[in-house]
Amino acid sequence: MIRGETIENLIEIKGARHAYQTASGPLPVLDGLEVAVPAGTFAAVVGPSGCGKSTLTKLVAGLMKPDEGEVWLHGEPVTGPRKTVGMAFQNPVLLEWRTILENVILPLEIVAPKMSGKDRIARAMELLEMVGLSGFENKRPSELSGGMRQRASLCRSIVHKPEVLILDEPFGALDAFTREDLWQTMRDLRAAEPFTAVLITHDLRESVFLGDQVIVLSGRPARTQYVMDVDLPADRTLDVLFTKQAADMLHILRDQIKIAQGRDVEGQA
């Protein structure tokens, strides 16, 4: 993308409001959600627990509609599921009866039924190699470690070259070191693949390392409370997290989370 060109927002959520119907009456989860993600960028969404972050992923995926407000993908309002979306969750949800390779191919069976078996395998193997799973393609998911399963899940989420990648805390259940490994894998995938991503996370360091912008949601019902542009180089390494610049960003985000949780922040209003 040429600098100075008007950047198109690939994902846009405007004034979304939503309430779930529960036995004890409506439970508002979203109240004025504003999200704009330019094409090819990575938006990290953070916020207190239970603030409606997963609802946001369902809106973008077209799995549900907001009561009010609009969701746009690529200049079109979202009316339902579309083949140009990829999803990965905290639970890798691999199919136990398929090998790793067959698991990665699954979306192609739905999205590209006419693609030849050979092409599917080539595409899947390309991704498996990128995430370091070469040689494991014929294993069953139960034979792999948690980190490896999550790598396979990431491959599956982008195998059909989606425009939009939705990541709902995909690294949340991993240990700290494995998680950092996967951040770097994600960074490399981003450089190689064309998707625009929304990452839901509870980890501020993760949001700064992977995001081009970090969106802080308020406590439930969620509105967009704060948006931070992450002004770090695209080919960042983990070392960047130890710079003053990153520390300042993390500090601001931390304060914003406290506000979102409804607590006072020392030295600020």
């Binding site: 995926a61 083949k83 979306v85 949800v93 979306p107 939705i166």
Partner: peptide, 20 residues
Amino acid sequence: EYRDILRALGASRFTIFRKI
């Protein structure tokens, strides 16, 4: 989540039943 990985791609209920 098992349903959503295919539902998000617009797979039919029958496809989700058969494949998952």
